[in-house]
Design a protein around this nucleic acid. Structure first.
Lengths: 198, 198, 198, 198
DNA sequence: TATGAATGAGTATTCATTCAT
DNA sequence: TATGAATGAATACTCATTCAT
């Protein structure tokens, strides 16, 4: 069925694991985690369900592996941020780098955003929550006014949601991305200024 | 099992439909739509699954009915907004009223937020999208700078997320709610000022 | 819903039982016995399922009552036939009268024909089988050649099937009915002549 | 439970699909399609319901597969008949061959006969209707008298019904089968002679 | 003469997972 | 590196029937 004369099957050798991850993420993001069955993933890849189990122990582990692979840059970013002084520049830089990192893992974050209820019950739920907390601790001043704290959270949410919610708005995608970043930086800046009056 | 001497069963009569809605929303919000089975809902109410089907034709219809009952105020709000001039005052008022309306239907909106992938495939998905579009059309100026448009969307998101994400932040709930509103109003105001310079 | 100013509801009083039978037969004949639910029957009549149970003890009893009402003429016919001499004239007359009787209860016999597997397990199954045996005993000569016996059964089948299978054949319905009768009479006549050579 | 020392389970390997078809047809013919549940089929085979779904996508597909496997000879017969001249000899030969083909698929045709209401709503309903129309077109002369057209249909019906209805008649089964064929051939012959007078 | 509310037993179907080969 | 065959547990949904009112 999937065997072709030119060795298509050969090309596939050795990267099945990667292909499973790709297809799984695509389907998870498109339909949600629960509504995507292993049968569906297998069919898309033209392999049997059992083949998936050769590469991953469970359905959840497929998601975990995708998550870990795609969010390593963000983990690094947070690690870096923890070592920096809590200056406005640091905060702005964090927002900028986070924005860049999100761009590279868009489908995963779209998935995380749209399947929060599910994710919460999965292993990656805690991991993700921890990371978000880490991010917040860097850009939020615990002594700041409530409104300023919320501005920071809003900035994070804007970055997350920016990627897909803004689809409805017309305009050049690149410009939209820039605008999203601008608003997020602005929010963090306002928050910082609010608690560090010149 | 559920029969008590004092007539607990009697009290239940006539409000089973309402009780189903209540329990369903509670469980949907807590565990997600797919992970909540009708068996579970029935057990919580101490009735059989078939009883649910006496009151609702499908699982989805339970959700639809809850959605309709709880979002009527918001529908009204949007209708009201459509008739108002697009002034700053209107926009601010919309945000204030929307904030209030959300408070009254918190679990439902938490559910909507956390089950977007699921909701998208359900009937209420379209309805909800339409409403959000309606809201946006009122507070967003189509000629405004991209960043200002995004500020408005951010305001809406802040209101939505505000309710549950802020749980991690310490502080008096009422004050937090006020702060969330303040930030949202602020965002809309900035957006308006950006495109309507005095 | 079904209440009209002119008293439609009033008119219905007292003949609900009959109306249930009518609708039930119609649906049974159209969709089969198992695929027709009491809910469906009730909805067609704009009453509740429970109302059906006021008039009939079970689903099967609805069918039984229809069967008994509609096949009484056939019962009488068989009773009459049993008392007649087994002459050719008697046999031809039986075929003619049976043909007429079938015409008056077409939907029921269509139902019986198309739901034999179901009917066999129902009370009316035995009754019906007995009647058919009775009919056969009148027109079949037990000493006749096998082929002649089969001709008689074929005659009966032709009468039964004639009513609906012939739909595919073009022609005036009345003429088709006559032709069906002609073939049946012919078969019985041939059978009789085979075993009673002049 | 079904594991025996002598490897009964081993023998079953590889032919489960066939065994499902066999048991399904047996039960469908015995009890009807709707009254036969997949649970029942599975129990007869000592496998789980899910095993059935490994081999067939739906309940209906089980029936379809049985139908296709068992009626292929009839399809071929009709194809053959279409290429023949519409002579008396052809018609008689068709009847003879059809009679033989029916004998080989008796339970299926018993099922089709006794579950017409159900079959009508299934995919095989249309297929079957088409085939019967094909058969009719070969043996029926469209210009013939109505009675002669009906004789042909009666012949077909006699062949169908012959197999099981004749059970009530005593006599050697083989002789009965021959007699059925004789009557059918006779009917077709009479019909042909009626419209092609020597 | 009906209805509102409910039940218990059932149905077809789907899913993640397992394991011998 | 995979597959073929199967399982156990679950799911949404339907049905005939009951009974107090």
């Amino acid at each position: 069925m999937s065997v072709t004369m030119d060795g298509t099957k050969q090309q596939r050798r050795g990267n099945t694991r990667q292909r499973i991850q790709d297809v799984a993420l695509e389907l998870f993001a498109e339909q949600g985690y629960e509504k995507t069955s292993l049968r569906e993933i297998a069919e898309h890849l033209d392999v049997t369900k059992a083949a998936l189990y050769y590469h991953f122990k469970t359905k959840e582990e497929i998601l975990v592996s995708v998550f870990e692979d795609l969010t390593r840059p963000i983990e690094d970013l947070i690690e870096w941020g923890k070592g920096q002084p809590h200056t406005l520049e640091t905060k702005q830089e964090i927002v900028r780098r986070y924005h860049a990192a999100l761009g590279a893992a868009e489908p995963l974050f779209r998935f995380m955003q749209e399947n929060q209820a599910t994710v919460r019950e999965l292993k990656i739920g805690d991991t993700f929550k921890d990371r978000m907390r880490g991010l917040r601790n860097i850009i939020i001043d615990p002594d700041a006014a409530l409104a300023d704290q919320i501005r920071c959270i809003s900035a994070l949410f804007t970055l997350h949601a920016g990627m897909f919610v803004m689809q409805d708005i017309e305009g050049d995608p690149r410009k939209k991305r820039e605008a999203v970043l601008e608003v997020a930086v602005d929010l963090v800046t306002q928050a910082h200024r609010g608690s560090h009056p010149a």
